[in-house]
């Protein structure tokens, strides 16, 4: 796919628009009126002390909170202009468009190949075995796992190392060709080398996907993201370019957090 020479890509278009999002777990409110615009083709980092609602917000974007009993979401969230909490929306389709990578690598108890092929199979993305092979290879290549995995596609996904498993989960997520990839502290269970590998990967993936990443490491946010949102006690305190947030935060709470005064 190539763009006509004389047009610039609509960089500033807001991929995701959230307005006044409240989330309750039973009687406990976890998010208070969060309004956030996510720019497409970018990495947006969500930072903040633990328990401040970063994961909760992330899980609103693919309606993963639906599967938690007692969780209620209100407000408005649009992805590419479509209200994802609209009654007529197909949640299953939404989750195919908005992929997710979790804190702990969670490969299915299947072979490496079947892990990647899982999504394409349930969505009928491949018409033939050859196409499926192609999707699997392409996803593994993009996730930077092809060289390590190509000779052991039939082995269980759990036989990989932790960092490899997490890249497998990323490959699995991008195999269904989503527009947005949500990552919830994807490196928190990994060692520094595996972490660096994933960070490189995130930087490459931003060419093709809009990425939101929750991280508790401010260095990581600074390294991989273009925009950063700071959450505190269920409120979105401040959002801006990563550079601005880290060098010139407007809010004193942001300042305190990034200088390590709490959290």
């Amino acid at each position: 796919m190539s763009l006509p020479d004389d047009t610039t890509p609509p960089e500033a278009a807001n991929m995701i628009v959230a307005r006044d999002v409240d989330v309750h777990y039973d009687d406990k409110q976890a998010l208070f009126g969060v309004s956030l615009d996510v720019v497409g083709g970018n990495v947006t980092a969500l930072i903040g002390p633990s328990g401040c609602g970063k994961s909760t917000f992330l899980r609103c974007l693919n309606r993963m909170n639906d599967v938690i009993e007692g969780c209620r979401v209100s407000g408005r969230i649009e992805i590419e202009g479509e209200d994802i909490y609209d009654r007529s929306l197909d949640v299953v389709q939404l989750r195919a468009r908005v992929g997710m990578v979790f804190q702990k690598p969670n490969p299915f108890p299947k072979s490496i190949y079947d892990n990647i092929a899982y999504g394409p199979r349930i969505h009928g993305l491949a018409a033939s075995r050859g196409e499926l092979d192609e999707i699997v290879e392409r996803s593994l290549v993009r996730a930077g796992l092809w060289d390590e995995a190509k000779d052991r596609l039939r082995q269980p996904g759990t036989s990989l190392s932790g960092g490899q498993q997490q890249r497998l989960c990323i490959a699995r997520a991008i195999a269904v060709d989503p527009q947005v990839v949500l990552m919830d502290e994807p490196c928190s269970a990994l060692d520094p080398i595996a972490t660096a590998r994933i960070e490189e990967l995130i930087d490459e993936l931003r060419q093709n996907y809009t990425i939101l990443i929750v991280t508790h490491s401010m260095q990581q946010a600074a390294r991989v993201s273009q925009r950063t949102a700071f959450f505190h006690l269920g409120y979105l305190v401040e959002v801006g370019t990563t550079e601005q947030i880290f060098t010139n935060p407007h809010d004193s709470r942001t300042q305190d957090y990034i200088t390590g005064r709490f959290g």
Binding site: R95, M100, F102, P107, P109
Partner: peptide, 20 residues
Amino acid sequence: SLREGSYGLGATQSETIRQV
């Protein structure tokens, strides 16, 4: 986490149960 991984890929509940 296995269930969520499957839901996260857009699997329905019964697909998740049967296949994962």
